[in-house]
Amino acid sequence: MSDDILIENENLAVAVSPLGAETRSITSRDGREWLWDGDPAFWTGRAPVLFPIVGKAPDNRVTIDGMAFPMQQHGFARKSEFTLEESAASSCRFVLAPTADTRMAYPFEFSLSITHALAGATLTVTAEVANRDDRAMPFGFGFHPAFRWPMPGLNKGHVHHITLDNRAEPAMIRLRDGLLDPTPLASPFADGVLALDHDYFEEDAMIFPEGAGDRLSLSAEDGPSLHFRFENLPNLALWTKPGAPYICVEPWHGMAAAHGKGPALEDRPFTRTLAPGESARFGWSVAIDG
């Protein structure tokens, strides 16, 4: 496996791995690390890219045009080696093209590019999915970055909040046996604000299919704030393992298969389908304040 690529500017240094084009580190110039470090005692991920599905499939398989294919949770991109195509002081772009292994799980010609770029104290991660095939191509896509909770320099006594810029109170759903239970539950947000508590995650992820908007903040009482923006990613999930020192802020376009609905890829909630030659862009950014 190739070495990480380092991009930096006067505010931030960011490491990106060719494996999965995954963000591996986000460090301020004062030495504070904002991203989760992948401690295997809890979870080895840091910021995986989810493609061509988000979440699980029944029995770890999907069907495409009636044919069955093996598909692990969150797809294969996160465990695939990307090719570095562009690299500059403050940006880099990795690309994944089909291989014999990907075609065994996902029989399409595609291109997936992931670009990391710095501007001031903001990191922007952009993805472009292109259909290089001669038929329609269904897929799901998402980002899964994990940030330190509590934030660097703070302790567990500091209350952390998620605040939606639109001040909404979106309905929540949960997973059942790893698949979506579509039953809407009462929103844990009040006027767009959620005080994080590990007890929320005893039942796995908190999923908000719609209504969370495209901007939110993760902030600490008497501490710093992280300001997020999302592009073309209508679904939001929050997740951690109970007691683990990280919180995942996950914007998606696509979700796990609904419980009892079968393995068809095109039937998964929020699946995107590209016509031959078409492409779609997705992105998230985080601005560090404090």
Rank of each mutant, 00 (worst) to 15 (best):
I5K: 01
L6C: 08
E8S: 00
G20V: 06
E22G: 01
R24G: 03
T27M: 08
D30V: 11
R32G: 04
W36L: 08
W36K: 01
W36Y: 14
D39I: 09
D39T: 09
W43V: 12
W43E: 08
A47H: 07
R61I: 05
T63K: 02
I64Y: 03
F69I: 06
P70A: 03
P70N: 07
F76V: 11
K79Y: 10
K79H: 09
T83Q: 14
E85D: 10
E85Y: 00
E86Y: 02
S90K: 00
S90T: 00
C92I: 02
F94P: 05
F94K: 04
P98F: 10
Y106R: 10
P107K: 12
P107Q: 15
F110W: 14
L112P: 04
A117E: 14
L118S: 07
A119L: 00
T122E: 12
T124S: 15
V125D: 07
V125W: 07
V129C: 14
V129K: 10
N131C: 12
D134S: 14
R135H: 15
M137A: 10
M137W: 10
P145G: 12
P150A: 15
P152F: 13
L154Y: 09
I162T: 11
A171R: 14
R176M: 07
L179C: 07
L180F: 03
P184R: 08
L194E: 07
L194C: 11
A195C: 06
D199S: 15
F201K: 13
E203Y: 09
E210I: 13
G213F: 05
L216Y: 02
L216N: 05
A220N: 07
D222M: 11
H227T: 04
F230T: 11
E231Q: 10
E231T: 11
N235S: 12
N235W: 00
L236V: 05
W239R: 04
W239D: 06
P245H: 07
C248W: 07
C248A: 15
M255L: 15
K261W: 04
G262K: 08
R268P: 06
A275T: 10
E278G: 05
E278T: 07
R281K: 15
G283L: 03
G283H: 05
S285W: 05
A287L: 02
A287R: 10
D289A: 07
G290A: 13
